[in-house]
Deep mutational scan, measured.
Amino acid sequence: MASQGTKRSYEQMETDGERQNATEIRASVGKMIDGIGRFYIQMCTELKLSDYEGRLIQNSLTIERMVLSAFDERRNKYLEEHPSAGKDPKKTGGPIYKRVDRKWMRELVLYDKEEIRRIWRQANNGDDATAGLTHMMIWHSNLNDTTYQRTRALVRTGMDPRMCSLMQGSTLPRRSGAAGAAVKGVGTMVMELIRMIKRGINDRNFWRGENGRKTRSAYERMCNILKGKFQTAAQRAMMDQVRESRNPGNAEIEDLIFLARSALILRGSVAHKSCLPACVYGPAVASGYDFEKEGYSLVGIDPFKLLQNSQVYSLIRPNENPAHKSQLVWMACNSAAFEDLRVLSFIRGTKVSPRGKLSTRGVQIASNENMDAMESSTLELRSRYWAIRTRSGGNTNQQRASAGQISVQPAFSVQRNLPFDKPTIMAAFTGNTEGRTSDMRAEIIRMMEGAKPEEMSFQGRGVFELSDERAANPIVPSFDMSNEGSYFFGDNAEEYDN
């Protein structure tokens, strides 16, 4: 993207840094990872977990959730003011799984939030270390993106479920800051804005008074975040219109849905970061690795190297396929839920299948599930090659597409044709070009129609051997075009429920 120079890199967003050079960025990201790792080690000690239990991804998720809940100030305040039966607002906890007599047992633990905050700050040299908290939120978000298709949420806001490739980060909490905003897809931002506008339509006082002023500035800020994701002048001009509207209503909703559809071809720039579970960072720190000293990046080879040398386990339900569970977590670790499966298959070195073909449910185990038949197995999170994460949407291309997802959002900077089903997408653009945004709409449609099938995206960008740390010898991959490109292809993934 041309304006790259004016933006802070995501590592800076990730670490609240002012302008830093590459070495400083690597050190501050490393410091953040160190903090998460030290916190995780301490929690495993508190909970008396064995090494194996500490490497269980379900335990990692519970521990991450506990610290996120302990620092969720708004919710904590709300819980104190609106006490609900049987919930102690000062405590947080969740299921911890232990191996007892050759069987997995679930144990519900409860801790004072104050105590968890103390352990977290102690692991982070006394700081609140917001960057580390956001990092864990993005890992949870990436896992949700890989596990669930947001059909219901899309339909509720009037969008087409086939636009799911635009929904990265749709389950990120509001408090995820600049680093969170960077990884949100165009569809996620559109959905947040539509929800806001709908509230304004239904509630006369939404934009009024002292609160209304705050609401208005939040609305304009979200519009600017979305505008910054678009790469064409016409899309940005249309966002200006939406932002400046005196009284946002149905016309703005129409414009936003139009823009979301246009992003299936004229893709937005959305950041991709490899955020790993805390149970990967903990053992690495415990083994003596100093992330701050060595430096770390979320968008280069580092996460690949770390996963190459990590042992992570997962509980497996009786009829689940461990290899499929591994694929789910591998995609989440690489922030690749909406990437082209052919690119992923090449990088991973084994075939990556669409969601609907995987015999696996989510990673988390519900409290009512029976533990008797639970097994555990090693997650295979290694890769054959590594590639640089991208934040450009890439230019655009036609490809055989599917009944489910009709476009992709690249996660890796790797040369390819970008699949999208042009006739299906263009069919949504018939007729409606009147109104105050008509010239911009016409211009956007013209650009979409001009998108050429034979153009290559990320020209000359390749993948790298894991021994090639400096990215000196790019390998331009070859793809098996007979395979499906979309992950949520004609899909039956479970729906995400809060």
Rank of each mutant, 00 (worst) to 15 (best):
M1P: 10
E11G: 03
V29I: 03
M32N: 10
Y40K: 10
C44A: 00
T45I: 03
I57H: 05
A70E: 02
A70R: 02
K91F: 09
I96H: 08
V100T: 00
L110N: 10
Y111R: 06
W120T: 08
R121T: 13
M136G: 15
M137N: 12
N144H: 04
V155C: 14
P161H: 12
R162Y: 03
R162D: 06
M167F: 06
M167L: 12
S170K: 11
P173R: 02
G185F: 10
T188Y: 09
V190Y: 06
M196C: 04
K198G: 12
I201V: 15
W207Q: 07
R213G: 01
R216G: 14
R216C: 05
I225E: 12
K227A: 11
A234L: 09
Q241P: 14
N247K: 04
A251H: 10
A251V: 04
A260C: 12
A263N: 13
I265K: 14
L266F: 15
A271Y: 09
C279Q: 12
V280S: 12
Y281V: 09
G282D: 12
D290S: 13
E292T: 12
L298E: 08
V299Y: 10
F304N: 08
Q308V: 00
P318W: 15
S326D: 08
S326C: 14
A332C: 11
F338T: 06
E339T: 13
R342S: 07
K351I: 03
S353Q: 09
P354A: 15
R355A: 10
K357I: 06
R361Q: 08
R361L: 04
V363F: 08
N368F: 12
E369P: 01
N370E: 02
R384W: 14
W386P: 08
G393A: 02
G393T: 05
G394D: 13
N397P: 07
A401S: 05
A403N: 14
Q409C: 05
P410I: 09
A411F: 09
F412Y: 00
V414K: 06
Q415E: 03
P419F: 04
K422Q: 04
P423W: 05
N432E: 01
N432Y: 04
M456D: 12
F458H: 03
A472G: 13
P477V: 11
E484A: 02
N492Y: 15
A493H: 15
Y496W: 15
